[in-house]
């Protein structure tokens, strides 16, 4: 047991943060742009010898000084972060780490979910977590040709509906995954309900929750929060690796998405899918977006209409179910949030 002490690092404490950054850089790790808690262990001279951080339900940005490896410092850092997460009610935790460090986390009760070969490994602290999710999905497996769409539907538009219709027409069963993470303007329960209403006329659609596994703040935080291109790409690759496993279970042979012009994240994500999915024998189909009023329909443009109160245009962009919800008192808090937001477009 070392005499080093662990303490929280205040993000505004530039001096201490610089020490943490120095340690991360020396160990070849870049500090994530989005973190909500950082701790570090200091030696008797006040030098940072180990560090780790949290964001949401994830642990990340671990480093132990080369001079102190093999002393069990990582164990203490992880313990500290697990205690911190427990105090804020998070027990199902995720992390990603460099492939060569994964075995240390295996020893600390973390289990591999997916890996981008040679780059990073994505893990969770629940043995039956992802395998349980796959097992539940497997019950919905259908014979014949299966396809998949993943959507955030924030909120559900004619564009989403068009994509679902096109994909559903191409196969015997369309597995439609709705992003579960509650980091978007519209709450998950509402988004899912509107997807359900908007696809009710398609008899071969099976709805699923993405859970913490596809496009979640664990696998793909940069989908929700701004980050750099390299980070987005790394996370997109990981997300695609997770999807490949899901596709394997459900026998999905194609993944459908709308062409993306406006959002940097989504277009990067589409590019990664186009590159990676065919390697696993999954066709990636990118279809031109449905248009209205001389422009393509996107959830971002719907949110822009809502912000400016342009309900006339709105009618041309969203199906009846969504429109009905948007006009209802239930939508009021979300609309208020939209009106006061600086930026409503997906970056």
């Amino acid at each position: 047991m070392s005499d080093f002490y662990i303490s929280q690092v205040d993000p505004n404490d530039a001096r201490t943060m610089a020490r943490v950054d120095g340690l991360l850089t020396r160990e070849g790790i870049r500090r994530d742009g989005n973190l909500d808690y950082t701790c570090a262990m200091f030696d008797e001279n006040g030098q940072a010898v180990a560090t780790g951080s949290c964001f949401g339900n994830t642990l990340r940005c671990f480093a132990v000084s080369g001079a102190h490896q093999g002393e069990g410092l990582l164990n203490q850092i992880v313990t500290h972060l697990i205690d911190y997460q427990a105090a804020r009610g998070q027990f199902h935790l995720f992390l990603y780490t460099k492939a060569e460090a994964a075995r240390f986390f295996t020893d600390l009760g973390f289990h591999e979910i997916a890996r981008v070969s040679g780059k990073l490994v994505f893990m969770e602290n629940r043995r039956g977590g992802f395998s349980g999710y796959l097992k539940r999905l497997e019950k919905t497996k259908k014979s014949g040709v299966s396809a998949a769409v993943v959507m955030n539907a924030n909120p559900f538009t004619f564009g989403h509906q068009y994509l679902a219709e096109q994909a559903a027409a191409s196969c015997d069963a369309l597995h439609l995954f709705v992003v579960s993470e509650d980091l978007s303007f519209f709450p998950f329960a509402v988004r899912k309900r509107l997807v359900e209403l908007g696809t009710a006329h398609l008899s071969n659609v099976i709805l699923h929750d993405c859970g913490p596994y596809i496009i979640s703040s664990a696998t793909f935080p940069s989908y929700f929060l701004k980050d750099e291109t390299a980070v987005i790409e790394g996370q997109a690759r990981l997300d695609v690796e997770v999807f490949k496993q899901i596709a394997g279970i459900l026998n999905i042979s194609s993944r459908w998405a709308g062409e993306e012009g406006a959002s940097r994240v989504t277009s990067l994500y589409n590019r990664v899918m186009a590159e990676e999915l065919p390697k696993a024998g999954i066709r990636f189909v990118e279809i031109p977006r449905a248009g209205a009023c001389g422009a393509v329909i996107s959830a971002s443009s719907v949110r822009a209409c809502l912000r400016s109160g342009d309900f006339e245009t709105l009618e041309k962009l969203v199906p009846a179910g969504t429109l009905h919800y948007l006009m209802s008192p239930e939508a009021e808090p979300v609309l208020r949030k939209l009106r006061s937001a600086k930026d409503v477009a997906h970056y």
Binding site: G72, N75, T79, I82, A86, G89, F91, G109
Partner: peptide, 16 residues
């Protein structure tokens, strides 16, 4: 409610 006790240090265990 969920609760944790213990640590991941050598000769200890963490129980959730």
């Amino acid at each position: 409610q969920p609760a944790v006790a213990g640590t991941l240090e050598s000769s200890d265990c963490m129980v959730t």
